[in-house]
Design a binder for these strands. Structure first.
Length: 821
RNA sequence: GCCCGGAUGGCGGAAUCGGCAGACGCGGAGGCCUCAAAAGCCUUUACUCGAGAGGGUGUGUGGGUUCAAGUCCCACUCCGGGCACCA
């Protein structure tokens, strides 16, 4: 298409100006009111894709809008530059992940600049920067000293073919390695954890104070999974000295306990298993513990549970009935939750019901289901039956009584359990931040002293096809001496989960200037919390939960004293880009590169499209009509350009009625755009501008001529409103109209004149029996009586009444009158 | 299975507090300009009956509340997302 102006020339001109003049650099001692605007820092996968464009268009709009609102806006950027894709690419290309990563970073940076997104580049943070790594490691050690980091055995995905550990995403749906095709095994390795569960309660409670999308909060709540219940002992029938401790949230159903189950990993499995049952139990345990997590949970879909178990030969006493019930080992009970053992109530629990049915165990109802209930386990409200002293009570009352009973008779104790597990941070990977620990034969694990940080992975490595981390076999890296005793020792060769990098980068960005520590808490406290965080919904759980934990922990270990404990006050999650329905991704090769549009419709045109195409939170389907939508946005910019550079206007001296109408439209537009931006309704903000441009354009070209002051006001206001959305063209046209004056982006955000926004006369709808029969012009402050009289006197209304007498007249002046006959 | 979200013209979407359904844009149709085209400009465009004036219908389906429902309530269908043996 032919454009009205040279898009590339205009855009590159302003991009270099913003960068060269440091327009969006902001100092930590800036006296203006502060605003921290942040987009989730990207993984550098190469030049930007449409998802980036969308994300950073929204972010840039916020930055420029808040700047015009007079705030000192902190707008940093960085790169989440560690990670598996770089490692895989390096293996393929036989190069070093750093070379690969840095090339991709440069590409992405160039795209962001061509998008016109503006940042304080002095604050750029990237995960593999040795400076950043040093502080990541300092933080790890601080957590360790505070007891928040610890070592424990945990199962990992082990590929026998590659002789290495796999990330979950490297294991295919059928349980094989994506690279070698071997069946992935489960192995126990000693690994590092962060004690995030210590913060479960706070992470849950603080969600309430956050201005986040409700569904993200719900996802986090579910992930944390708090549940209140009772822990108590089930005594072994033939040896009361041995007790099986169980956890339940339904103590009220105790009379329905017809068996008990322990997890295959449970420490009492040996003790409970009788000689006759030994073979059965051993087989079950072997199968369950060797299986991958995947196999163990396979077949769970749709609730069709393939539960497997074995009788131990032992019995425990149901404390409610006093009767012995059998104990099973079954793989549907998890060793890692609660006590790793349960009381089973098949009548009121689906899983127990399925197991009991399969193994022919008793089912005794304790809650009366409704008459029409035809399912298996019943978990609704109801009155207790078959339950001795609980009979007749409702669920809540019975819970109370049963809990009190267990406290007195079975070592019962009210407890809270969480679904949330501690955060496993070890990765058996090369391209990540090394865990700064040295293992010494005599001193045990020792932290690398601060003056020896950062621990940086060596450059002289070759990534081989197995995917095994070269650190594990690189002796120059691995072998060292103990910092305490000086004896030969070896380094930890695991690296940290990349989620650790993204858990504190926003703190570093707030103050990357203080030497010797991650940041100066006092400086950071002045910027935090982030006022507006913007990113993809895919980070709703992990990244956002880990970052929240990190900040709380950093405050507690003294590295972030005074910093608010919640990092992100407001969160916005944007929709995804889909290509004809399916998810767009690099691996599918269905990306629509933004670069091609920068040369045609320009960054402004593409940005406008992303703003206009629909609500920012909704997904965007990229299809055959997208191209023409983008062109429609470019066309709008062309029309604006033509109007702003119009030469053959007939200027007239006197103001007339049309001037007032135009001024009204323009001021209403100011109000509408401002309000739309505040509530993240960018699509309607653009629509308002399009509408206004149509009005002004038509008026300015009219034969009756245009009044200069009206035209000037209209153009200036439109350019100001457009400045955060299409920053290049707005700046260019503003400069054209105000040569030598400060840029449009330095101008305060406009305020609508209330007198012009208010409409003195409005259209009132007149309905007869709820159907619109007429519209009449009335003053906007019209009284009820006058509104009614106007409605009843309208010829079309009289015709529709056809002589019938109104039974009732509803008057909602000045909007509507409804006459009921 | 449980928890969330959604469904509006040919298409993307608008309707912010229960009060004019379809703003704005795309696409379509017709016209102006032009030797012609591109670009631009103008008109029109939910469906339907009607020559027109005008009428009827219409926001996934079925009910309900209300003078009035896209909006609130109940039941359901379909689509999308999250969790998925967490006792």
């Amino acid at each position: 298409m032919t454009r009205a102006f040279d898009v590339v020339a205009v855009e590159t001109k302003w991009q270099s100006r913003w960068r060269d003049e440091g327009t969006y650099e902001v100092d930590n001692d800036d006296p203006r009111e502060r605003f921290y605007a942040l987009c989730m820092y990207p993984y550098p996968s190469g030049s930007a894709h449409q998802g980036h464009v969308r994300n950073y268009t929204f972010g840039d709009l916020v930055v420029r809008y808040q700047t015009m609102r007079g705030k000192a806006v902190l707008s940093p950027i960085g790169f989440d530059s560690f990670g598996l894709p770089a490692e895989n690419a390096a293996i393929k290309a036989g190069s070093h992940p750093r070379l690969f990563t840095e090339a991709r970073m440069a590409e992405l940076k160039a795209s962001l600049i061509r998008l016109g997104a503006v940042y304080d580049w002095r604050r750029e943070v990237y995960s593999h920067d040795p400076q950043y790594m040093k502080y990541s490691q300092m933080i790890f050690l601080a957590f360790w000293r505070a007891g928040l980091a610890y070592r424990a055995y945990a199962p990992v995905n082990w590929c026998p073919g590659c002789a290495t550990v796999l990330a979950n995403e490297q294991v295919l749906a059928d349980g094989t390695c994506e690279r070698s095709g071997d069946l992935v095994e489960r192995r126990n390795l000693e690994q590092w954890f962060f004690r995030i569960t210590d913060y479960a309660e706070e992470l849950l409670n603080d969600l309430e104070s956050l201005d986040w999308p409700e569904r993200v909060k719900i996802m986090q709540r579910n992930w944390i999974g708090r549940s209140e219940g009772v822990e108590f002992d089930l005594a072994l029938a033939d040896d009361p000295a041995v007790a099986l401790r169980v956890f339940t949230t339904r103590p009220d159903t105790g009379f329905g306990v017809t068996y008990a189950v322990v997890a295959p990993e449970h420490p009492l499995v040996e003790r409970l298993t009788t000689a006759e049952q030994h073979a059965d139990v051993a087989e079950l345990v072997a199968r369950a513990t060797a299986a991958t997590e995947l196999e163990r949970t396979a077949g769970v879909e749709g609730g069709a549970l393939d539960k497997r178990g074995a009788f131990t030969g032992s019995y425990v006493v149901n404390p409610f009935t006093g009767r012995p019930v059998p104990v099973y080992v079954a793989d549907y009970v998890l060793g890692t939750y609660g006590t790793g053992a349960i009381m089973a109530v098949p009548s009121e629990d689906d899983r127990d019901y399925a197991f009991a049915t399969a193994y022919g165990l008793d089912i005794v109802r304790t809650v009366q289901p409704p008459d029409d209930f035809d399912g298996g386990a019943y978990h609704g409200e109801g009155v207790h039956i078959n339950s001795g002293f609980l009979d007749g009570l409702d669920v809540a009352a019975a819970k109370e009584r049963a809990t009190a009973f267990l406290e007195q008779n079975a070592q019962g104790r009210r407890t809270v359990n969480y679904r949330l597990r501690d955060w496993l941070v070890s990765r058996q990977r090369f391209w990540g931040c090394p865990i700064p620990i040295i293992y010494c034969e005599t001193c045990g694990p020792v932290g690398v002293p601060e003056d020896q940080l950062p621990v940086v992975a060596p450059d002289d490595v070759t990534m081989d096809r197995t995917g095994q981390s070269p650190l594990a076999t690189h002796d120059a890296f691995r072998l060292t001496v103990c910092p305490i005793c000086g004896e030969p020792a070896h380094r930890e060769t695991d690296t940290m989960d990349t989620f650790t990098d993204s858990s504190w980068y926003f703190l570093r960005m707030a103050d990357p200037f203080t030497p010797g520590r991650p940041f100066d808490p006092a400086q950071v406290a002045r910027w935090m919390p982030v006022d507006q965080y913007i990113g993809g919904i895919e980070h709703a759980i992990l990244h956002l939960l880990y970052a929240r934990f990190y900040v709380k922990a950093l405050v507690d270990v003294g590295l972030a004293t005074g910093v608010p404990r919640e990092p992100f006050r407001r969160l916005f999650t944007q929709g995804m880009i889909r290509l004809e329905g399916s998810k767009m991704s690099k691996s599918k090769g269905n990306l629509v590169a933004p670069e091609q549009y920068f040369d045609t419709v320009g960054a402004d045109g593409l940005r406008l499209f992303h703003l206009f195409v629909g609500p920012p939170a909704d997904d965007v389907d990229w299809n055959e009509q997208t191209e023409s939508l983008i062109e429609g946005c470019a066309r709008f910019l062309d029309r604006l350009y033509r109007l702003a550079t119009l030469e053959d206007v007939r200027w007239r001296e006197a103001e007339d009625e049309s001037d007032l109408a135009v001024r009204r439209a323009v001021h209403r537009c100011v109000a509408r755009v401002s309000e739309s931006i505040e509530r993240w309704s960018y699509n309607t903000a653009v629509a308002a501008l399009m509408e206004t441009l149509n009005t002004v354009s038509k008026w300015a070209r009219d034969e009756a001529g245009a009044h200069r002051a009206t035209y000037d006001e209209a153009l200036d206001l439109m350019l100001l409103l457009l400045a955060p959305m299409a920053p290049h063209l707005s700046a260019e046209l503003w400069e054209h109209r105000h040569p030598g004056e400060p840029s449009v982006h330095a101008h305060p955000w406009p305020v609508a004149d209330p007198a012009l926004v208010a409409t003195p006369r409005v259209t009132m709808v007149v309905q007869v029996n709820g159907k619109v029969r007429s519209r009449v012009e009335v003053a906007s402050d019209v009284g009820e009586d006058e509104a009614r009289d106007r409605a009843l006197g309208d010829p079309s209304v009289i015709a529709h009444l056809a002589g019938r007498l109104p039974q009732r007249i509803v008057v909602r002046a000045p909007r509507l009158v409804n006459i009921i006959v």
